[in-house]
């Protein structure tokens, strides 16, 4: 890691520091994942061996993981939950962020504080209250309870991001549209939304990935096999088929496919969502 930083005019070149960085990154971050991938396609008999023989590659682990972990059912269920969560979070995040960015009104600081404060309280410490209230309301084992919970936990950051995004847009167009007789709802729909689409995209990616990442709340609130989030399928394999390491490896690869694909395809939105939350405060 010695070498001069940030000299973008120099062409990139392979010096010792570059080679070293590449080797460290490949060994530390990529090799473990490759090993899991390898175990996922090898027969159980080779689980702890370092022999690699392409002739012996098999998809048996994947089919076993899919059946024993109900992964198809869990994937469909997670996708529906993610879409419904987006259907709540995206419009509410946009209109709330817009209101906080563009209007001066009494209580604005209090509301900003509420959203900031909610970022502080992670789902975990509220889970006890949520569980008790949901069980009184007969919402346990109902996936809609997860949609509500995920919406509530995604909204603070989404509102925060949308507010920062709207603040970065010029307000002249909105004022001109108001004079031209455009309704206030029309302004949000026809002017703010199209301009803020990249921000909405970043929030959508964050929301979907967070649903595919979630485990503990779903595991606590929904205990019907096949309904909930994909990680519950992986957990079932890990706790019920403890010694089936190749099957568990295959399942852990399968539940990671959608988040990793989203990241690869939408890298820019993903990274802007990741950084903007803290950078723009």
């Amino acid at each position: 890691m010695n070498g001069s930083p940030a000299v973008s005019r120099e062409p990139s070149r392979w010096d010792l520091a570059s080679v070293l960085t590449w080797v460290i990154v490949l060994v530390v971050f990529t090799l473990p994942i490759c090993w899991i991938l390898l175990k996922a396609v090898q027969p159980e008999s080779l689980v702890f061996s370092s022999v690699v023989s392409i002739a012996e590659f098999t998809f048996a682990n994947f089919s076993r993981a899919i059946v024993q972990g109900s992964l198809i059912s869990y994937t469909i269920s997670t996708s529906i939950i993610a879409l419904l969560t987006c259907a709540i979070v995206l419009p509410l995040g946009l209109i709330s962020g817009y209101a906080l960015a563009r209007f001066a009104f009494i209580g604005r600081a209090t509301l900003l504080f509420l959203f900031m404060f909610s970022l502080t309280i992670p789902g975990l410490v509220n889970l006890l209250a949520v569980y008790q209230v949901f069980s009184m309301a007969k919402l346990i084992n109902n996936p809609l309870s997860l949609v509500l919970l995920y919406s509530a936990s995604s909204l603070p950051l989404s509102v925060w991001l949308m507010r920062a995004y709207v603040l970065s847009l010029p307000s002249e167009v909105e004022e001109a549209a108001l004079i031209d007789g455009c309704s206030r709802i029309g302004i949000i729909w026809r002017i703010v939304l199209p301009l803020a689409l990249p921000g909405v995209g970043a929030v959508a990616v964050l929301t979907v990935v967070s649903v595919f990442h979630e485990f503990i709340m779903a595991q606590t609130l929904v205990k019907v096999t096949g309904i909930g989030v994909v990680n519950q399928g992986l957990w079932r394999l890990q706790t019920e088929y403890t010694l089936d390491y190749t099957g568990i490896a295959a399942a852990s690869i399968l539940v990671s496919v959608i988040p990793v694909l989203l990241f690869v395809v939408l890298q820019r939105q993903f990274i802007s969502g990741m950084t903007a939350g803290a950078m723009k405060g």
Partner: peptide, 8 residues
């Protein structure tokens, strides 16, 4: 820092 310099 390593990435910000021109790592290939």
């Amino acid at each position: 820092v390593a990435l910000n310099r021109n790592l290939p």
